[in-house]
């Protein structure tokens, strides 16, 4: 119970901090290449980034407890790799590896470790890699699953900076031939891709809430034909649809958190990321329709959120990827399992 309070407290603090610090200007600054490192340091000093670490002295907060934290990050389109770092530090603690200072980036691609101790494989798109002190991933060596980390400084030669939709520092990295800085077997509750999918689903659900809020506010203030456009049913129903999508994304993401906490991950990540990706697509579509021409300008703040929604929709598998996974799993379980799995 007391743990829950810590999580709530942190989410609250973070909400206040981000509300004060994040604005269209600070987001634009990040996207122009001058991100707010001071804000990062402040947050790191708060200790938020460590709360999901497990182990004797760690806070060890679970997924459900931290759901709100992630959603706050999404709501504010936080220009910080805090979501990645929270998850990254948890993974490091689970594997018993030392936790470096500074932000982390995560790789969800298939990487292997060869007999010579070298990594093989590449990742097309790693958010925040250019900022990260270390980049983490899972590598396979035979039947073993290892968490590996490479230092941010070590990968710069193999990294290609990318322009991503969210315009955060992003790179493609070819790890082939690199020797990890550290590695250790890990028994995580789910694959990195699944965990990252849940994180993205939570971020999406937070950002969807924000976008719906912005759209409702705009519909209530923008007047055409002598009344607020929100008085027109055609818009009301689109907004209702958007808020249903946002609510569905939140439910699905929290369901996945519960599964992860119970250490029985099955379809949660797939359901969460599928639902959230569809929500990301639909909520942005509707918001842009509501805002009319002003919404497609660079000057308006809407796109800081909708671009992130489009980005997170794609990260860690889009709706098509996860519906495929879900379908394959259901088929593999056989028809007798379908009803129990739906009603469980």
């Amino acid at each position: 119970m007391s743990e829950l309070n810590i999580a709530e407290l942190l989410a609250d603090q973070l909400e206040k901090l981000l509300a004060a610090e994040v604005s269209a200007e600070s987001l634009a600054a990040l996207e122009n290449g001058t991100g707010n490192r001071a804000l990062w340091q402040h947050i790191e000093a708060m200790g938020v980034a460590d709360v999901m670490c497990t182990g004797a002295e760690a806070a060890g907060l679970g997924w459900q407890e931290c759901a709100e934290l992630f959603r706050v990050l999404g709501r504010h389109a936080a220009p910080l790799p805090l979501a990645e770092t929270l998850l990254g530090r948890r993974l490091l603690s689970q594997a018993g590896l030392a936790i470096p200072e500074g932000p982390l980036a995560l790789v969800d691609a298939d990487i292997s470790l060869d007999d010579a101790g070298c990594l093989q494989g590449a990742a097309d798109m790693i958010s925040w890699a250019p900022w990260a002190t270390a980049i983490l991933g899972i590598a396979r060596r035979g039947a073993e699953t290892l968490l590996f980390s490479v230092a941010g400084t070590a990968v710069s030669a193999a990294a290609t900076e990318l322009h991503s939709l969210e315009r955060a520092p992003t790179a493609a990295i070819d790890f082939s031939g690199m020797t990890p800085q550290a590695q250790a077997p890990i028994a995580a509750e789910a694959s990195i891709r699944e965990q990252l999918a849940v994180v993205r689903a939570l971020l999406i659900s937070g950002a969807c809430d924000k976008v719906v809020e912005l759209a409702v506010e705009y519909a209530n203030t923008r007047k055409q034909f002598g009344k607020p456009i929100g008085k027109f049913q055609a818009l009301q129903h689109q907004l209702a649809e958007a808020s249903c999508r946002a609510a569905a994304a939140e439910m699905a993401a929290k369901y996945a958190c519960r599964e992860l906490d119970q250490k029985q991950p099955s379809t949660g990540a797939a359901v969460a990321k599928y639902t959230a990706s569809v929500a990301a697509r639909e909520v942005s579509r509707i918001a842009h329709q509501v805002f009319g021409a002003i919404g497609i300008t660079d000057e308006h703040e809407l796109h800081y959120f909708t671009r992130r929604l489009w980005q997170w929709r794609v990260d860690a598998g889009n709706e098509r990827y996860w519906s495929g996974q879900l379908g394959a799993r259901v088929l593999a379980a056989g028809s007798a399992q379908l009803w129990p799995s739906l009603t469980a």
């Binding site: 991503s164 990260d315 098509r320």
Partner: peptide, 20 residues
Amino acid sequence: LHRLTEFNVSISGEYGAVVG
């Protein structure tokens, strides 16, 4: 046109997040 361009992004997986 909306539906078509969305389809193109959705089948392209990760490529759908690249700008440019």
